[in-house]
């Protein structure tokens, strides 16, 4: 077995590797999506996490809704969502998410959230209400990307009551780097969450994602893949970690496309039904195409 070689991050006046090049966005879908989200006072993880795919996804008139506010209760070193004391929940948010989904014509809706350790149920009830509202309004497939709810199974159960077709919870990185990357999270707790979801809702697609380039080794990644498969995880996403600002954890390494391909092949050998890997892959990037059969793919308007 081998470890990944160390490559120093680029200097501040840097150029990124050629595989991080994007096409210039075309059309006005970008503007339409942005205006709609503003009008309905909705947050997206695309915006808050400074996602590099945002122009492309907005141009396709799709977005990943971020509910429960835009202030997080956890200080993760990779994430650009502000940390602090969140505001009260907005009771009409589920209807606004449903409205936006309908107007964007989405057939696959991804809903994620900040972590709300301040709420007794971690925001699980609000999650469930959003899932139900979107489904009732649009009939779309709904994918949730939840926090770990501190391992509270009653909170997970509440989300599962709404029967999301896809349940995603990102492992983010290898256990050795948890303290640095996901300060208050627990590797085992996250694994247990995914296994519990599969046990309670065997028909739901379970999904997880990892950021590469934080200093992990290939062996460590393979171990995480195996742990996820042990809990029955169906779908895996692998993408390049990109530091949102210079204050965040620096990129340890830019992983070439060929390595993403090799890792994806290994993950498939371990039994994942669907694996998407590449520098710009994010857990909800083209999420509609990650559901087996692509039956509910979003199409640009």
């Amino acid at each position: 077995m081998f470890s990944l070689p160390t490559v120093l991050p680029p200097s501040p006046t840097r150029r990124l590797p050629s595989w991080l090049k994007r096409r210039l966005p075309r059309g006005n879908g970008n503007f339409y999506t942005e205006q709609l989200l503003r009008e309905l006072r909705l947050e997206t993880v695309c915006e808050n996490a400074r996602c590099p795919n945002r122009p492309e996804c907005y141009a396709r008139r799709t977005a990943t809704f971020m509910i429960l506010g835009n202030v997080c209760t956890r200080p993760c070193g990779f994430c650009s969502v502000p940390r602090g004391t969140p505001e009260a929940l907005e009771d009409d948010e589920p209807q606004r998410v449903a409205e936006a989904s309908a107007r964007l014509g989405l057939r696959h809706v991804v809903i994620t959230s900040v972590t709300r350790d301040d709420l007794p149920d971690g925001g699980a009830d609000h999650f469930a209400r959003c899932v139900v509202a979107v489904r009732q309004r649009t009939g779309a497939v709904v994918e949730v990307l939840t926090p770990d709810f501190l391992g509270d199974r009653s909170a997970i159960d509440r989300v599962l009551e709404a029967a999301p077709e896809v349940y995603n919870h990102n492992m983010e990185t290898v256990p050795r780097l948890y303290k640095k990357v996901r300060g208050r999270a627990s590797y085992q707790r996250s694994l247990d969450l995914l296994a519990y979801v599969k046990e309670r809702s065997p028909g739901a697609v379970t999904k997880s994602g990892l950021m590469l380039g934080l200093g992990e080794t290939t062996d460590e990644l393979f171990d995480v893949f195996a742990d996820l498969r042990e809990g029955g995880c169906d779908t895996l996403t692998l993408g390049q970690y990109l530091a949102p600002t210079l204050k965040h954890i620096p990129v340890a390494r830019y992983v070439p496309v060929e390595e993403f391909d090799a890792l994806a092949a290994q993950a498939r050998r371990l039994g994942f039904k669907h694996v998407v890997a590449g520098p710009f892959v994010r857990s909800s990037y083209h999420a509609d195409k990650m559901v087996p059969g692509h039956a509910h793919a979003n199409h640009p308007a």
Binding site: R14, L16, L20, Q240
Partner: peptide
Amino acid sequence: SVWYARQGDFVFEGDRLVEVLTDGATFDV
């Protein structure tokens, strides 16, 4: 981030001329 062509170079329409860098991605103009 970088110009691919120097002043005085002959360029063709559609050639990538200049690279710009933003959050985690680059674009060629």
